[in-house]
Write a protein that binds this DNA or RNA. Structure first.
Length: 421
RNA sequence: GGAGAGAUGGCUGAGUGGUUGAAAGCGCUCGACUCGAAAUCGAGUAGGCAGACUAACAUCUGUCUCGAGGGUUCAAAUCCCUCUCUCUCCGCCA
C-alpha cells in the first residue's frame, strides 16, 4: 500500500512511476474518487454527530418533547442510511483501486519496459570449462537416479518431481549449510505454516495483482504460499517492534507452491519451473533510515551462500518494468547454466520499503512517534534451482556430479554423486 | 467430529440498553518531594478516518472501533443472528 498523503500532495510522482512500470492506472480519476469519498465522509460524520448529540438529550426529556425528538431521529436515520450505503460503495471502489498502486522505485533502479531493460550489475567467478559435451541437469539427474519426472507426472501431472537418493541428501546438505551460515549472521531460523489466510497474501503484496499464481483451498479459505516471504512478513503484523531489535532478521525453510499460470510450455522439464519446491528465504524488518544499507547486506549474504558453493553468476539490477508491485528495488542472482549457455535466475532479493509494512501495520517506536518499518526479502537458497546449477556446473565427463567442497561435511564426506551402474 | 466456557485498552479485569472510549489495579511517561534513588503524591497514557490550523510536527473538533460481519432500537460493549479464534473435556490422529 502506498502513502495516500503523498499521492494527494504529489500525484506526479505516481504518474511517472506508473508509466515507468508499464502500468495502466488513471491517477486523476482516482483522486477525483478520493475527493467524492471524503465529501461523503464529511456529510456522514455530521449527521452522526447530530444523532449522538440527540442521544444524550433523549433520556433527559419526557412526554411530547421526547416523542418529537425520537421521531426526528428516525427521519435522520433514513437520510443517514442512504449516505452510508453510497459511502461504503465508494470506499470499496477506492480501496480496490489503491491496492493496484505500485511502490515507488529507488532512484538506482533502471527504467525499462520489460526484462530487456534489466541491467547486469556485475559478474562473479568464472565460467567453468568443459572438455566434453555438457548434459543438462535432467539428463544427469535421471541417469544418476536422483530425479524422477515420469513418475511424478503420473501421480501429480506436469511440473512435479521426485527427488531420490543422493539428491535428497544433497537437499538436506544445502539446508544445513545455508542455515549454518545464516545463523552465524544473526538470522533466526523458522519453519512457517505454508497455508495462510487471504489477509497475509494481500498484506505481503501478492494479492490482488498476482493472485492467479497461487493455489487456493476452497473449503477452508486458505492459500498455499508461493514463498515463505508471506508468513515471514505477516509474522509481525499489527505489532510495534522494539527499535533496539532492528534489524530483525529471519530465515525460513518451507515448501513453496506456484500455479505457474501463463507460463505454458516455458522451461518444461526438470527442476527449474515446478509447482512445488523447497526454499530457504531470508526476511528483514529494518529501520527506514538504514534500510538501503541493510538491503545491500542482504544481497551480500545471498552472494556469500552462492560464492561458498563455487558457482559463477551475475547480479542483475532489475528494471521498473520487471520488478514486482511491492518492490522498490530488486536484484536477481542469475547462475551460469552450461547446458543452456546462459544465466538463469536462481535467487532474487528485494527491498519493499514501507509498502508491506503499511498494509500489515508493522511499526516501531521512535521516541514518541510510531513509524512504519521497512521490509526486505531475499532467496537464501531455492533448492531445486540451486541443485540444477550444482548438477550442471559440477558434472564430469562420466555424468557424475562432484559435490561442492563446502557441502561434503554435511553428506558424510561424500565427494561425488556417482552413477551406480 | 461431539460437549462446554470464553474473546473488553500495553497487561489483569469491571461493566447486561441511555452523557461508558470504557471503573479499578498494574505497567509506562512527565512533574513534585530527594544530594540521588526507593516509597509517596499529582497529571497524563489506544488506534483508524475526516475536518480546522500549520512550512511541518503538534494541537483542536467530529466520527468510527469493546474478536469479525450483519440485525433490532431514537440509542448497543450490553439484546438477536452468522462466522472466526482461544481454552477445557471426549473421540480421532503424525
Amino acid at each position: 500500500m502506498i502513502d495516500l498523503e503523498l499521492l494527494r500532495k504529489n500525484p506526479d510522482i505516481f504518474k511517472t512511476e506508473i508509466k515507468n512500470r508499464q502500468m495502466k492506472i488513471d491517477v486523476d480519476d482516482d483522486l477525483k474518487l478520493d475527493a467524492e469519498r471524503r465529501e461523503l465522509i464529511f456529510k456522514v460524520d455530521k449527521i452522526r454527530a447530530e444523532k449522538n448529540e440527540a442521544s444524550k438529550k433523549v433520556p433527559l426529556l419526557s412526554g411530547q418533547e421526547k416523542q418529537e425528538m425520537i421521531a426526528r431521529m428516525k427521519n435522520l436515520n433514513n437520510e443517514l442510511k442512504g449516505l452510508e450505503e453510497r459511502l461504503s460503495e465508494k470506499e470499496k471502489e477506492f480501496s480496490d483501486r489503491m491496492s493496484l498502486y505500485p511502490n515507488i522505485a529507488h532512484e538506482s533502479v533502471p527504467v525499462g519496459r520489460d526484462e530487456s531493460g534489466n541491467v547486469v550489475a556485475y559478474f562473479v567467478g568464472d565460467k567453468p570449462v568443459f572438455d566434453f559435451k555438457v548434459k543438462n541437469h535432467i539428463e544427469i539427474g535421471s541417469a544418476l537416479g536422483i530425479i524422477d519426472e515420469e513418475r511424478a507426472s503420473k501421480i501429480s501431472g506436469a511440473r512435479f518431481i521426485f527427488l531420490k537418493n543422493d539428491a535428497v541428501r544433497l537437499q538436506f546438505a544445502l539446508i544445513l549449510y545455508v542455515f549454518d551460515l545464516l545463523i552465524k549472521k544473526g538470522f533466526s531460523p523458522l519453519i512457517p505454516p505454508v497455508l495462510v489466510k487471504e489477509k497475509a497474501m494481500y498484506g505481503t503484496g501478492f494479492f490482488p495483482v498476482e493472485a492467479s499464481q497461487y493455489y487456493k483451498m476452497e473449503l477452508d479459505d486458505l492459500f498455499l504460499i508461493g514463498t515463505a516471504e508471506v508468513p515471514l512478513c505477516a509474522y509481525h503484523a499489527d505489532e510495534i517492534l522494539d527499535v533496539n531489535l532492528l534489524p530483525l532478521k529471519y530465515a525460513a525453510y518451507s515448501t513453496c507452491f506456484r500455479r505457474e499460470a501463463g507460463s505454458y510450455g516455458k522451461d518444461m522439464g526438470g527442476l527449474f519451473r515446478v509447482h512445488q519446491f523447497d526454499k530457504i528465504e531470508m526476511f528483514i524488518f529494518s529501520h527506514p533510515d538504514k534500510s538501503w544499507d541493510d538491503y545491500e547486506m542482504l544481497r551480500e549474504t545471498l552472494e556469500n551462500i552462492v560464492k561458498g558453493l563455487g558457482l559463477h553468476y551475475r547480479i542483475m539490477n532489475m528494471c521498473t518494468g520487471d520488478i514486482g508491485t511491492p518492490n522498490a528495488k530488486k536484484y536477481d542472482l542469475e547462475a551460469w547454466i552450461p547446458s543452456q549457455n546462459t544465466y538463469r535466475e536462481i535467487a532474487s532479493c528485494s527491498n519493499d520499503t514501507d509498502f508491506q509494512a503499511r498494509r500489515l501495520n508493522i511499526k516501531f517506536k521512535d521516541g514518541d512517534k510510531k513509524r512504519l518499518v521497512h521490509t526486505m526479502n531475499s532467496t537464501a537458497c531455492a533448492i531445486g534451482r540451486m541443485m540444477m546449477a550444482i548438477m550442471e556446473n559440477y558434472q564430469d565427463s562420466k555424468g557424475n556430479v562432484i559435490i561442492p567442497d563446502i557441502l561434503r561435511k554435511y553428506m558424510g564426506g561424500m565427494e561425488v554423486i556417482k552413477n551406480k551402474d
